[in-house]
């Protein structure tokens, strides 16, 4: 069976981000394109961070998922033109992220974000009474915060 580009992108849009399983690689803005040629299918990805360790897993997930649909041969290419930014994350995806317990990136075009400017609302109780615990967290893309009202710690997806 022959698939067109939209169909393949729709299949790939079901692959979850390994770190935030409620969001797909498409919603987070990593999936850029599929190029179909006589040599097969080339999936174009852009990483969130240069050292993102999820890239290898995502590439495997893509190949496996397409194989299940009898789509092959598949190659995965990583590109860096127009560097990934948190602005690429859709509004819906940000809301999913919040419900999952991760505070979504707050500002647009975060190039000059300074941590002290923005108050990050608690994804659990919505309080603005929160404090930064650490700018760096369990993954490259997140910082750690604490809510002073509900007392829960939470992660914030940094602007990037």
């Amino acid at each position: 069976m022959n698939y067109n580009k939209e169909q393949i992108l729709a299949i790939l849009a079901t692959i979850a981000d390994p770190e935030i399983p409620v969001i797909s690689i498409s919603e987070i803005g990593m999936l850029k394109d599929v190029i179909i040629s006589e040599n097969g299918y080339e999936v174009i990805l852009t990483p969130t961070y240069t050292g993102c360790p999820a890239m290898g897993i995502i590439a495997e997930d893509i190949i496996t998922k397409l194989k299940e649909n009898n789509i092959s041969p598949v190659t995965v290419k990583t590109v860096f033109d127009t560097a990934w930014t948190t602005d690429n994350i859709s509004k819906e995806a940000k809301e999913k992220m919040r419900r999952y317990g991760i505070a979504p990136p707050l500002t647009r075009s975060c190039n000059n974000e300074i941590f002290t400017i923005n108050v990050i609302p608690c994804p659990q109780c919505g309080s603005f009474n929160t404090v930064l615990v650490s700018r760096f967290g369990s993954t490259a893309c997140k910082a750690m915060y604490k809510c002073s009202d509900c007392m829960e710690p939470f992660e914030y997806f940094k602007c990037h």
Binding site: T50, G51, S134, F136, G137
Partner: peptide, 13 residues
């Protein structure tokens, strides 16, 4: 975490 995050960014680069 911070210093190893730095290291991680640098390995990617």
């Amino acid at each position: 975490l911070a210093l190893t995050n730095f290291a991680f960014d640098m390995i990617g680069r």
